[in-house]
Amino acid sequence: MRVGRAVSDAQEAELDLARQLRRVGERHAAEPDLYHLGHTLARRCGEHVERLAPFARRYGVRAREGRTESPHLLEALRRRSGELVGHSELAGLLLLRDLRDLSLTAHEAEIAWVILAQVAQAVRDPELLQVATECQEDARTRGKWLRTRIKQAAPQVLVAG
C-alpha cells in the first residue's frame, strides 16, 4: 500500500502552490487583489498541509510544516520591484503568464486531493476522507478564483495592452 505517498503528494503540491502564490503576489504587488489574496490563499495551503500531519504519521511519511512565509527582506524586495514593474506596459503579459502557471500548479494540487479522497475511500479511512473532501472543495474554489481573474485579465492584456 502506498497511501503515504498520496498524503505526501498532497502536502508537496500544496506547499508548491503556497510558494508560488506568494511569489506571484509579490511580483505583482501593483495588483493589490493578487498580493492580498495570494498571501491569504498561501496561508490556507499551509493549513491544509497541517491538517494532513496526523495522516502522514498514520501512513508513515514525513509530516511537513505548513509555514512558507517568504523571508522578510526578500518579500520587501520582490514587492518593491513588483510595484515598479507594475507601471510598465509589459506588466500585463507577465501577469497573464504568471496566472496561467499558477493555475497549472493549482490544478495539480486539486488533483492531488482527488487522488487522496479516492485512496481514503478505498482504505476506509473516514477521517482522511473528510479532510480530503473539504480541502478538495477549497482547491476547486481556488481554481475558480484563478479562472475569474484570468478571464478578466486576458482580453485587457492581449487586446488593449
Binding site: A30, H87, S88, A91, K151, Q152
Partner: peptide
C-alpha cells in the same frame, strides 16, 4: 460580458499600467 464588468479600482489599475 465575457468577464465581470470592471470595477473602478481595476479601471485605475489599467490606466496605471497603460492599457486604458
Amino acid at each position: 460580458t465575457w468577464a465581470p464588468p470592471t470595477h473602478v479600482m481595476q479601471i485605475f489599475r489599467h490606466a496605471e499600467e497603460g492599457s486604458v
